[in-house]
Computed example of a mutant assay.
Amino acid sequence: MQLNVGCQILFESHDQTPVILMLRPRSGSGQWIMREEYQLSPHVPVVEYADGYGNLCQRITIPQGAFQVRTSAVVDAPDKIDVEPNAHFVPVPELPDSVLQFILPSRYCEADRLGDLALEIAGNANPGYEQVEAIRQWIQQNIEYAYGTSNASTSAVETADRRVGVCRDFTHLGIALCRSLNIPTRMVVGYLYELKPMDLHAWFEAYVGDRWYTFDATQEQPRGNRVTIAYGRDAADVALVTQFAAMDLVEMQVWVTPAG
């Protein structure tokens, strides 16, 4: 499906504030950017670069006062995600070099502390895709989705203990559990068509059967029509806005609609 996606964010800055934005989707596996607009008001100089994961980042300095960012794109995205229960576990010696970093513990995904829980959940499943799907299903069925129950510092271990969170927390827990089984897993942020309530979204991808597969623990069934903005080890790598001085988020709107 061709999708109109975008967001509009209004900030109030107390002083000149250096900021890194990560709001531009890029063409790649599973999506094609057909048209794009990126508006800053008031306009300021922009320096763009690609980070270590290939994400497009924009460096700006926000002036004091009100500042608005509006991004929009028309994206051709697949209606379905690939599902392959027979995708096998890839032994660590056979993993590509670029994938190895995604089996290590990271700031919000303490894989070294969740091995027992991962075995309890997926120990009887066939190694590979079936284990990841068992973990995804367990999170979807056992973790309550509720706003205001976590914050920017909440980690996978805390979510496993509290059994409540939002998409970011569901994703961190899924990543940590999969990595504890030596399955490379990475975080994805972006847009999901017909997400309720509409917002920017997070899910994870696991490397099994020699490729990445999509898993979303917030959804009961596999769903396509996703637009990826960024990949990383966890939320520390995929922050859509990183500020280096005091600044308030006043308002944010997100939309995903059929194009045309």
Rank of each mutant, 00 (worst) to 15 (best):
E130A: 15
P25Y: 04
L195H: 03
V47R: 14
G190Y: 01
V227M: 01
P197D: 06
A235S: 14
Y191D: 07
L200H: 00
T171K: 09
Q31H: 08
R226D: 00
Q131E: 15
V208W: 11
T171F: 00
Q219D: 12
D15S: 15
D234L: 05
P18S: 14
D76H: 10
D199C: 05
W138L: 13
V241P: 01
H88P: 01
T171G: 05
G54S: 08
H88N: 07
S72A: 14
V19D: 01
T171I: 11
T214I: 13
R163I: 09
S106Q: 09
I81H: 03
G260Y: 10
S150Y: 11
F11K: 13
L117S: 10
E144Q: 15
Q16I: 13
E48I: 06
H172Y: 12
E251K: 15
A230W: 01
V69F: 02
G54A: 11
W32F: 08
D169H: 13
Q131P: 05
I81G: 06
Y145A: 01
L192A: 14
R24G: 01
G224C: 07
Q243A: 15
Q39H: 07
A239M: 12
R24V: 01
T159F: 10
G6N: 12
L119C: 15
T218F: 00
V5Y: 00
V256E: 10
Q68S: 11
G165Y: 11
V164N: 02
V75W: 03
V189A: 00
W32L: 11
E194H: 14
N55D: 10
V189I: 08
L40Q: 03
T171H: 02
I183Y: 05
P78V: 01
G165Q: 02
V189H: 00
G52F: 02
P184A: 14
S72I: 06
G232P: 00
L23V: 07
W212P: 00
L104D: 13
G52R: 14
A111P: 03
A160F: 07
S98E: 09
A87S: 03
W32Q: 12
A160M: 05
N225P: 03
W212I: 06
T257Y: 08
I20F: 13
Y49M: 07
S29G: 03
E12M: 12
D248P: 14
R113S: 09
V132Q: 09
A122R: 03
R168G: 00
G54N: 08
P91N: 08
D116C: 04
P127Y: 13
R179A: 04
